[in-house]
C-alpha cells in the first residue's frame, strides 16, 4: 500500500509530503503518525508541506486532526513551508487551521519544537 514515509530524528518525527495526496493516503498518514508517536514516545512532529501546491479542506482537516491528536499524546506538531498561494487560498476558503502551529521553513520549525520542549 502507498504510504508517506515518517522519519525519526531523535525525539521528533519528520514528515515531508511530496505527492499529490488522495484522501485515503491522507487518512493513512494520520493513522500512521498516531501509531508512531505512541511507539516512539516522540515529543514533536514536523510536517513539511512545501511541495504541496494545493491544500483543500480535506487535507486541511487532516493537518488539524494530526495537530490535535499529537497534543493529546503529549507531542507538538509544527507545519512548515506552506506556499504563499496555498496560504491565501486556505484563508479565502475559510480554513484558518486554529490550533495548528506553523513555521516558514524546516529550520525554524525545528527551533520552535526545541523551544517548546525546553520550556517544559
Amino acid at each position: 500500500m502507498e504510504r508517506i514515509p515518517i522519519l525519526r530524528m531523535g525525539e521528533f518525527l519528520l514528515v515531508t509530503i511530496q505527492v499529490d495526496m488522495h484522501d485515503q493516503l491522507a487518512l493513512t498518514l494520520q493513522d500512521d503518525l498516531a501509531e508512531r508517536i505512541s511507539r516512539t514516545s516522540a515529543r514533536g512532529v514536523l510536517i513539511d508541506i512545501s511541495a504541496l501546491d494545493m491544500v483543500d479542506s480535506f487535507i486541511g482537516r487532516m493537518i488539524n486532526t494530526i495537530s490535535g491528536l499529537s497534543k493529546v499524546m503529549d507531542a507538538e506538531t509544527v507545519v512548515v513551508g506552506m506556499q504563499p498561494a496555498v496560504a491565501i487560498t486556505l484563508v479565502e476558503l475559510g480554513l484558518y487551521l486554529p490550533g495548528v502551529s506553523t513555521a516558514l521553513n524546516v529550520e525554524r520549525g525545528m527551533e520552535r519544537l526545541r523551544e517548546r520542549l525546553d520550556a517544559q
Partner: peptide, 30 residues
Amino acid sequence: EQDVVLARQVARKLAVECGLRLVDQTKLVT
C-alpha cells in the same frame, strides 16, 4: 478518489495554459 487527484492535475494544467497567475491557479485547483 484517484479521479479527484486527476481532476486537480487537469485543472492545474489548463489554468496554466489560460495564463492564470499562481494564486488564481491555486484557487481554481482547490
